[in-house]
Amino acid sequence: MNIFRLTGDLSHLAAIIILLLKIWKSRSCAGISGKSQILFAIVFTTRYLDLLSTFISLYNSCMKVIYIGCAYATVYMIYMKFRATYDGNHDSFRVEFLVVPVGGLAVLINHDFSFMEILWTFSIYLESVAILPQLFMISKTGEAETITTHYLFCLGLYRALYIFNWVWRFYFEGFFDLIAIVAGVVQTILYCDFFYLYVTKVLKGKKLSLPA
């Protein structure tokens, strides 16, 4: 554990909680992509199956349980509790174009051709692109609520901190996991455009809206 990984995990946790609180407090999931949230629920489920087989640390297990629990709670709020506020018309990204290639890639490029390992690899690849339906939705509507941008910023920050974590681990532990690193870098790049808008607009007190 190093400071980048800890702050990365906490930033990830903050993102998840910001999203849950936004939906809960406003009683609305307007502007949130239910498809991205389903993808994240799939990501956590397929990655954290090792909760049942491997114990790493109390921290590790607790965080996994919290992430999975929050992911399903978010999906429940979007598709059940506050379904009436879900903006399905604008959430039109075709997720099969992500899930199918990612599944194929996980079978082809992995550390070990075993059930658990392929699921882990699938979750890593899927996480790297799971935010695309959300970004697509924002580009389609041309705007995002400020609280939604805070959520996205925390999520992107988590990815960026994980890259620093891998640099740290490579230098001080000689550890690197190429699959996680490549997927993580891809994922972080997807946030770059958003980071730019966040810094130039949201942090200056303006609402995030895209030019028509």
């Binding site: 990830h12 590790n60 550390h111 882990w120 690197f176 996991d177 190429l178």
Partner: peptide
């Protein structure tokens, strides 16, 4: 190298 020995990250 056995990179996949343990996935200790979240």
């Amino acid at each position: 190298a056995d990179e996949s020995a343990s996935h200790d990250e979240l």
